[in-house]
Simulated assay, not measured.
Amino acid sequence: MSNPQTTQNQTYHAILEALNHLINVVAKLRSPDGGCPWDLAQTPQTLIPYIIEEAYEVVHALRSEDQKAIVEELGDLLLQVVLQAQIAKDYGHFSLQEVAEGITEKLIRRHPHVFSDVTVENSEEVRQNWERIKAEEKGETQEMAQLLSRKLDRYHRTLPPLMASSKISVKAAKAGFEWENVEGVWDKFSEELTEFKESLETDDKSHQQAELGDLLFTIINLARWYDLDASEALSGTNERFIQRLSKMEKIADRPLNDYALEDLEKLWQQAKKQLNQ
């Protein structure tokens, strides 16, 4: 019978060996001596779009529950972490070791009920402790950390705009920034739509952008009132559009850009009908 401790140690060793191999591969790619020109040309800033893209691909894989895809996409996201750390090391800023040590220390510090003698009754107390410790780390008082503007600014700075708006809408509503009924939201939608249309009659792009943003934010508030997820809704629309376009390409006997608009509409309706069957 195998020893559980021995098996666990072997597993840890295999994981560390795999991680070390990845680190060495990335270091080789970044090496001025025989490395990859593309990898050598990257900076922390040029890799930002890839971090966002890979994170979303992980989310997509998780939703699909395709275990093979999850493994692949988590690997791609892990690559971005290792690559960022390698570039920082090349610049003499920090290393992957500091990244790992930092998050480990943070987890231990913010879970005193696990790693110390603090007692909690439920997950809400865990959350409260987390927020208190986090505020202390940042040199904030609990009163400062609880300011609504600080919370909303954090969403604005760290989340994609649509997701940030949804969270801002929920938090603001809980704080009292709310309509008495859904009719008030619809009135606001009509008001913002009118203002957006009026802005399009001007040459002021910044004003047009502002009015478009106001309109989108109102739509997100409508979604909240009807208990709908704006991000999920838009993601579904994107997926349906691509599916219909793919079906059109299968139906068509030539490239789509060779068709007149009215013929494209017929193909669109045909594709939509087939997909709905």
Rank of each mutant, 00 (worst) to 15 (best):
N238A: 08
R244W: 04
K205M: 05
S116F: 08
R127C: 12
R224T: 03
Q42Y: 04
E239S: 12
D253M: 07
Q270H: 15
V82G: 03
D203T: 08
K134Y: 07
A100E: 09
E136W: 07
I219R: 00
P44A: 06
T6G: 03
F115N: 06
A260R: 15
L47T: 12
K250G: 12
L216E: 11
L22W: 04
S190C: 10
G184R: 07
L275Q: 09
G236I: 06
A14S: 14
E180H: 14
P44L: 08
E121A: 15
S246H: 12
S64A: 13
L215P: 05
L267R: 10
E180Y: 05
F115G: 10
Y155P: 03
D33I: 13
A135T: 02
S235T: 15
R150M: 02
G139H: 01
P37H: 01
V81F: 09
T237D: 00
A172C: 06
E140L: 15
H113C: 00
I15P: 10
D229V: 03
E198T: 13
E98S: 04
E143K: 14
H207P: 02
E195P: 02
V81R: 02
L267F: 08
D214Q: 07
H21G: 12
Q209H: 11
G92K: 00
N9F: 06
Y155V: 01
E211D: 03
K266W: 09
D253T: 14
D263L: 13
W130F: 15
A164H: 04
D39R: 11
A230H: 04
T141A: 00
S123A: 09
A88V: 05
M248Y: 06
R157F: 01
A252F: 01
V71Q: 10
S235L: 09
F94P: 04
I15W: 07
K171T: 11
A100K: 10
T104M: 15
N122T: 03
T194V: 07
F115K: 06
G139E: 03
S165H: 09
K174Y: 08
Q97V: 10
S64F: 02
E180D: 14
D76A: 01
F241G: 04
Q208H: 03
Q42A: 05
V25S: 05
I168Y: 05
V120S: 01
P32A: 09
H207Y: 13
P161M: 06
K167W: 05
V118C: 02
R132T: 09
F217V: 00
A164I: 12
M163V: 15
H93G: 04
N181Y: 02
A223G: 08
E178I: 11
S123P: 00
R127V: 13
G75P: 08
K171E: 12
S2C: 05
